[in-house]
Design a protein around this nucleic acid. Structure first.
Lengths: 339, 339
DNA sequence: GTGAAAGCGCTAACAC
DNA sequence: GTGTTAGCGCTTTCAC
C-alpha cells in the first residue's frame, strides 16, 4: 500500500509537508497543497490510522460491553452510541460478555492492548469487581451505562434511567386504574437496575397506600422470558392471582404473557400485565410498559465518554445523568375508563 | 504507560528477549523467562497492540456493516460473528449504515484507514457499487452476508440463506394446509434477498399449481412494520382478502398483524399470516415463519472472513455458502388438522 | 513555506 | 540464548 513517502516522491515535497496537508495544518502554500492533493489521488494514498495512533496515542475507537446483544434493550442503546461515535469520528467495538466476569476481564485486557479511547460498561454488578480498575490504571476512561456498582469512585461516571421514579410511576398508574392487588416480578438483585426497580416498587406501593404482599414479590436469578414464564405458571398454580403483574423487564413480561395465554387467562380482563423497558416489539401484545429512552441512554453515555477521552474529567453535574422515564399506556393493563 | 523498554531495564534483558517471551517464541531460557515474567508483572506492562500492528500489518479487528442494528435480524447475526471473532482473538467494529450509500462509503474509508483485517457486508444492493472495490484495492478481504450484488467477482464470497427454497417451502406448506388464495408482500427489489424471496414464491406457486394473482403480489420500498401495515390496510379496504398473507420479512408481518387486529380480522380463522426470518419475538403473536439460522449465518461468515484474512483465498466450495431454511409452524397459519 | 530527522512501541534479521 | 539495530508509517520539532 502506498505510504506518505510515495506521495512525497511523487509530489516532490517532503513527508512533513504531506502530513501538514493531510491534517489540514494551514501553513502549506496553495500550489504545494494542490500538487500534493493530486499526488495523493494519483498514488491512491490513504493515511494509516495505526501509524497515526502510535504517534498520537489516540485511536478514535470506543467499545461497549453488553451481556447479550440479542436482548432488544442493547441494540437501541448501541444505535445511540454509534450515532454520536460516528458524528465524532469514532468507531465502536462490540463486546458480548455473556454474563461472565472472566470474559469481561479478558475483553478489558484486549481493549487495553488495543488502546481504545474509552469504554461503555453496561455489565456491572452491584458489587464492585477489579476489572474496571485495570482501565483506570491504564488511564482509559469509562462510563457505566444503565447498571453501576453500588459505590462509585469520585472519578467514575454513570448514565442511566431513573428506575426508582419509573417504578413509582407505574404503581401510581396502577392505583389510578383502581387496581390494588399487585404482584411484582423482580430481576436478579445483584444488578443495580433490578434492585432499584424493586425499591421503587416498594416505595411506590407505600406512597399509594397499597398493601404489599410478600407472596407476590417474586425474585428470580434471571430476567428473561423463561423466568417470567415460570413465575406466572407458579402464580396460576397457586390459584391466588393478583389483579396486576408488574414485571421489572419486558422480557419477563413476555414470558408471563405466554404463560397467561397458555392458561387462557384473558389480558386485561382477568389480569393486567405491565413491563419495564418498552422493548421494540412490546406493542405487538399491547404491552403497557415504561420507556427508559434507550437510544438516548446510548447517546448521552457516548457523549460523556468522548468528552472524557478529550479532557479526562467532567463537570460535577455530569457524574451521574439520569434520564426521565415515561409511562407507555397500552391495553395489557385494564384501564378505569374501559370498565 | 510502561513499554517493553521498561521491562528490559527492570529485568536486565533486552527488548528482543522480552518480545520473544511475550510472543511465546520458545528460544528463551527458563530462568530468563521467569525473570522477565516477573518484571512484566512488577512494572504492569501490557503489550501495545497498535505498535504491534504497525509491524505485523495485522490488527485482529473485523467489522460488520449493517443497515440498522435495531432490526432484530442483525443482533443474532452479530452475536454469531462475535462468537467466532472471540474464539480467534479478533475484535469487531459495528457499523450502522442506515441505508445510505454515502455513509457506507465513508465507513469503508474509515475501516481502510484503521487497517481492519476483514469486513462483513450485509448491506449490498443487487446493483454493484464501487464501495467494495476500495476494499479489494487495499487487499482487505470481505464477505457478503445475506445480501449480495447480482454479479460477484471470482474472488468474492457470500454466506446467505437459501431464500428460494425457503419461499418454496412456505408455499408448499400453504398448499398442504389446503389454502390457495395467497397474497405475497415483497420487500424492495433492489436487494438480492427480496428478489429471491419473490422468485421463490412465484416458483413455488407454479410448482404447487396455485394461481398467482397480480393484485396480490405487493412490492414496497421498505420492509418494515409500517410498510406491512399499509399494505394490509389497503388489502382490507379493497374488500378482497386472500386466505393467506405471506410476508417476505417478519417485520412486514408484524405490521400486517397490527392492521388485521385493528380491523378485527381473526388470525388464523379469517386469514392466515406467515412471515420470513423467524425474528426473536415472532412467537409472541404465534407467527408462522421461516428460520434462516441467523446466528449460524454470522458464525459461518466470520469463519470465512478469518480464513480469508489468513490465506487470502478459499476453496471453491466455500465461495458461496447457503444455509438450509427451516419452516417454523405456529398458529398464525390455519392448519388443516385444526379445521 | 518547506525539509531533515528523531521517535512512538514493537518485531525480527542478524551478529555474537 | 541473548543483544543490537533497523524499520513499520506517521507526526512534529527545529533548522533553514
Amino acid at each position: 500500500m502506498p505510504t506518505i513517502k510515495d506521495v512525497a516522491l511523487k509530489s516532490g515535497y517532503s513527508t512533513a509537508t504531506i502530513s501538514a496537508v493531510i491534517n489540514n495544518v494551514p501553513i502549506v502554500s496553495p500550489k504545494a497543497k494542490k500538487k500534493i492533493l493530486e499526488a495523493i489521488e494519483e498514488v491512491g494514498y490513504v493515511p494509516n490510522a495505526i501509524a497515526r495512533s502510535l504517534k498520537s496515542a489516540k485511536t478514535l475507537s470506543l467499545a461497549i460491553l453488553v451481556h447479550d446483544i440479542t436482548n432488544p434493550f442493547y441494540p437501541e442503546v448501541i444505535s445511540g452510541l454509534e450515532e454520536v461515535a460516528w458524528a465524532n469520528d469514532y468507531e465502536v467495538f462490540l463486546c458480548n460478555i455473556e454474563n461472565s466476569l472472566e470474559r469481561e476481564s479478558k475483553y478489558i485486557d484486549k481493549l487495553i492492548e488495543k488502546c481504545v479511547d474509552g469504554v461503555i460498561i453496561s455489565t456491572s454488578r452491584k458489587q464492585r469487581n477489579p476489572n474496571y480498575d485495570k482501565l483506570r490504571k491504564h488511564n482509559i476512561p469509562y462510563v457505566f451505562l444503565n447498571r453501576r456498582p453500588d459505590e462509585m469512585y469520585e472519578d467514575e461516571y454513570f448514565v442511566g434511567a431513573n428506575n426508582l421514579l419509573a417504578a413509582e410511576l407505574v404503581v401510581e398508574f396502577i392505583k389510578e386504574q383502581e387496581l390494588s392487588k399487585v404482584a411484582f416480578i423482580s430481576g436478579p438483585q445483584q444488578y443495580f437496575t433490578f434492585k432499584e426497580r424493586l425499591e421503587g416498587f416498594v416505595r411506590g406501593m407505600e406512597k399509594a397506600s397499597l398493601t404489599l404482599y410478600d407472596k407476590w414479590v417474586l425474585t428470580s436469578e434471571n430476567y428473561n422470558e423463561e423466568a417470567g414464564y415460570n413465575h406466572a405458571k407458579e402464580l396460576i398454580r397457586s390459584g391466588d392471582l393478583p389483579e396486576v403483574i408488574f414485571c421489572s423487564s419486558d422480557l419477563l413480561a413476555f414470558g408471563v404473557y405466554t404463560a397467561l395465554k397458555e392458561e387462557c387467562k384473558r389480558i386485561p380482563d382477568e389480569i393486567s400485565l405491565i413491563g419495564f423497558d418498552n422493548d421494540r416489539f412490546g406493542h405487538l401484545i399491547d404491552l403497557c410498559s415504561v420507556d427508559l429512552q434507550n437510544r438516548e441512554l446510548g447517546r448521552v453515555a457516548g457523549q460523556r465518554l468522548i468528552e472524557l477521552s478529550n479532557t479526562k474529567e467532567l463537570d460535577a453535574n455530569k457524574k451521574e445523568s439520569l434520564l426521565e422515564p415515561r409511562l407507555v399506556i397500552r391495553n395489557s393493563c385494564r384501564l378505569l375508563r374501559d370498565k
